[in-house]
Amino acid sequence: MNRETVISVRNLTKKFGGFTAVDNISFDVGKGEIFGFLGANGAGKTTAMRMLCGLSYPTSGTGTVAGFDITRKAEEIKRHIGYMSQKFSLYDQLTVRENLRLFSTVYGMSDAAIKSKTGEIFAQLGMENMADTLVRDIPVGWKQKLAFSAATMHDPDVVFLDEPTGGVDPVTRRKFWELIYRASSGGMTVFVTTHYLDEAEYCNRVLIMVDGCVRALDTPAALKERFGMQTMDEVFRIVAKDAGRAD
């Protein structure tokens, strides 16, 4: 599939003292692609993702995200991406509406844009009746959908999702992935990490990191064929098994 390149990384490396967290990685991600970023705990995923988001300066190597250089245009990158993690997403002590207001203001959206986008999100998620409920009081499934909407309300080119479905039940996980599918079919690039390997099957392409290096990168179908396996779960176990880093 020929897609316009949205993320491009060459020889990206990050060292912390004598420890090489990310070791010379290179890859491209196309527009509208759902890109699965896998690896064992401690493989370097979060460090790599922080560099792509403009939050951490690489030790060496280059990269562009949404057309901006990750070393020189970090602030521009932050305006053109969305980010959501399992650990940090929404403010529990604010209402649903206040959370959306906060995020959109941080993104620098105009009042008119905020109003129309908020209305759109409420209608799309069917949660108008929860608008003035504190986020801590809404069920986890709703919280997730809302967090995704908040992370993408400024229509970013790329959204980074760091273990968005950790600890979530099978039904809620699936509903979340339908949001991902929908965003991707609308042209948004989705960069996602997960420990649920059934979710790796839903990605257009999957990268597996081991000890800071790229160990595998291809479509799920091609990876399964290469390793002679039926599922991505089996592929992951083969690829990640010989990790030297004691997580």
Partner: peptide, 13 residues
């Protein structure tokens, strides 16, 4: 209580 949440597949095994 949910001891393996956020833990990778190999470590879970």
């Amino acid at each position: 209580d949910e001891p393996t949440t956020g833990v990778d597949a190999v470590s879970r095994s």
